[in-house]
């Protein structure tokens, strides 16, 4: 092993990322070569120094207040999870009783689970896709392709900036068996997803049909459960679904063409 070969492995050795065989060869070079052995000694010494200087954490006051903030967030999530399931049960029971009164027992039995089933089969996948976007690694080229695809299919394209949010990711995804363009906006940790699909292929969930909201010239369907809000809006041949877990974010602003801020 020559000097260059030994020095190439310098940091691998310091970081303990080297095989025993390589390490043995480097060590035997160092025994013969003062130049390299001095570099290795100094670099290890620098590393030890840096490690010692960076080992400490924030103060325990910070840790305690942070812990209680996190714990109260977890409590909030636990509560919405339990609230939602108890509401569903209640709705189901009422429907069950109505159906039973009409002596349609079998239909009633399927009604009994309908709310939960609807939740997991209809809203769940969209919420999952929204939360899963946090683990995406955005790609600019995919983002541009997706914007262009929506523009050519529907004649509009979602804005790259909405209020204080910027578009950080866009891609095609198959959700509920339908191809959707999924746009992700972020603003200091707050997130919004905008899904766009063909209205021929995707229908507003039947459970929401009776709950149309009209605001100005905008018609939409609102679903809020388990800490995630979904707003459905049909615009020509497109169905646009916006989603967020952040209560204060106005989802309507994210509907392309919407004038409500």
């Amino acid at each position: 092993m020559n000097c260059q070969e030994a020095l190439d492995l310098l940091y691998d050795i310091i970081d303990q990322e080297v095989s025993e065989i390589d390490e043995a060869q480097v060590r035997s070079h160092l025994e013969k070569c003062r130049h390299c052995s001095e570099i290795f000694r100094l670099e290890s010494s620098i590393q030890n120094f840096l490690d010692a200087k960076t080992a400490n954490v924030g103060s325990s006051d910070n840790l305690e207040s942070l812990r209680s903030k996190i714990v109260s967030d977890l409590d909030g999530i636990d509560r919405t999870e339990m609230d939602c399931s108890s509401k569903s049960k209640l709705g189901g029971t009422t429907l069950f009783m109505v159906s039973a009164a009409a002596l349609i027992i079998l239909v009633g039995a399927s009604f009994f689970t309908s709310d939960l089933v609807r939740h997991y089969n209809v809203y769940g996948p969209l919420e999952q896709a929204h939360f899963a976007a946090q683990l995406h690694q955005p790609s600019n080229s995919v983002m541009e392709q997706t914007l262009a695809a929506v523009k050519s299919s529907f004649g509009f394209s979602p804005g790259t900036v909405v209020n204080s949010f910027s578009l950080i990711d866009a891609r095609m995804e198959k959700i509920l068996g339908v191809d959707m363009a999924h746009f992700v906006y972020a603003d200091n940790g707050k997130r919004v997803s905008v899904f766009v699909a063909l209205s021929d292929e995707f229908d507003v969930p039947s459970g929401l049909k009776d709950h149309k909201v009209v605001r100005g010239n905008l018609e939409y369907y609102d679903h809020h459960c388990r800490g995630c809000r979904l707003v459905y809006h049909q615009s020509g041949s497109a169905i646009i679904i916006t989603a967020t877990e952040d209560k204060e974010t106005e989802l309507l602003s994210f509907i392309p063409g919407s004038t409500i801020i």
Partner: peptide, 11 residues
């Protein structure tokens, strides 16, 4: 830093 950690735990 605290916001980032808090958000990470929520996610």
């Amino acid at each position: 830093a605290e916001d980032l950690v808090q958000e990470a735990f929520v996610k």
